[in-house]
């Protein structure tokens, strides 16, 4: 578990003047689920694209299973599996035909391929739909076949790039359970997401990425520890104030460390929620803004992100 399967060193990617990834360095240990958590446009997919040999890094290095992604990329591609963010399947082929094709691209053939296809179909719970065209599947079913295609050759390191985007809660639950099963079977997973809850549920370790920079890496406990005993006070306000006005309303309250506002909800990072709460309610009432609900959250990754960037993950 402690041996790294992936190590990056100052990995950087620029598209002209736009620097998408600004020198990230991290490692992923064998058998763990490592999540890259960050908002859309943070550089997660670009990082995965470099690590899966799709994009040449502008500078920096990365080694997977002892092989450089730039100098030995064919060998690297044998070791990794990828579940891309978009559904990368052929709608015209059946689920089984898709898996036969992708298996052959990973140099599998014959009975071994057939047996492995049966296994992964079982794993994603789609054995009964194996001979139906993928074009007839729901979004969630397509996502599961998309995952199955990345598992066929039993990769040592599986990249999953936001695999739950745009699907129903039931399919999402299945996918999250499947990721944990894979980890339990010994597979290493590098998982990217902008959902804090997914990162919290799945990850052994988390890397927080924003604007192309890896701003923190560690276990959830280690990360929340960095912000001390901070809690988050969430106030759901009535209409009447803009987000900016809401931030100004609360930012100078005693005990408030940071304020963000989104969709009528104000999140206050505070040292002690119970002490800050009366002042916050009083300030809202004074301004004539009704407070509809109040939530107090223990320190979590959202708070860590807020603490590190001054913004909410969904901003």
């Amino acid at each position: 578990m402690n041996e790294p399967i992936l190590m990056t060193d100052n990995l950087r990617k620029a598209f002209g003047d736009n620097e998408a990834v600004k020198g990230v360095s991290f490692s992923v240990l064998r058998g763990e689920i490592f999540s890259l958590l960050g908002p859309n446009g943070a550089g997660k997919t670009t990082t995965i694209s470099m690590l899966s040999c799709l994009l040449e890094p502008t500078s920096g290095t990365a080694v997977i299973g002892g092989h450089s992604i730039t100098n030995d990329n064919l060998r690297v591609r044998e070791l990794i599996g990828i579940v891309p963010q978009e559904i990368a399947l052929y709608d015209e082929l059946t689920a089984r035909q898709n898996l036969v094709f992708w298996g052959q691209m990973y140099n599998l053939s014959g009975k071994a391929l057939k047996a492995r296809i049966d296994e992964v179909l079982e794993q994603v719970n789609l054995t009964d739909r194996a001979n139906d065209r993928v074009g007839t599947f729901s979004g969630g079913m397509k996502r599961r076949i998309n995952i199955a295609a990345g598992l066929l050759h039993k990769p040592q390191l599986l990249f999953m790039d936001e695999p739950t985007v745009g699907i129903d809660p039931q399919s999402r639950r299945r996918i999250l359970d499947m990721v944990k099963e894979l980890r339990d079977q010994g597979m290493t997973v590098l998982y990217t997401t902008h959902y804090m809850e997914e990162a919290e549920e799945l990850s052994d370790r988390v890397g927080i990425i924003d604007h192309g920079e890896l701003i923190a890496v560690g276990t959830q406990a280690e990360l929340t520890k960095t912000i001390g005993q901070q809690e988050t006070l969430r106030l759901h306000l009535g209409e009447g104030f803009t987000g900016e006005e809401q931030v100004h309303l609360f930012e100078d309250l005693p005990g408030v460390l940071a304020v963000t506002a989104l969709n009528g909800e104000v999140a206050l990072s505070v040292t002690e929620a119970e002490e800050a709460l009366p002042g916050a309610i009083s300030r809202a009432n004074g301004a004539g803004v009704p407070v509809r609900t109040i939530d107090i959250e223990e320190p979590n990754l959202e708070a860590v992100f807020l603490h590190l960037t001054g913004r909410a993950l969904r901003d």
Partner: peptide
Amino acid sequence: TQGTLRRLLTTPTR
């Protein structure tokens, strides 16, 4: 456009 080319190029296929 289907994204299959990107996926294909992550496999050990030249």
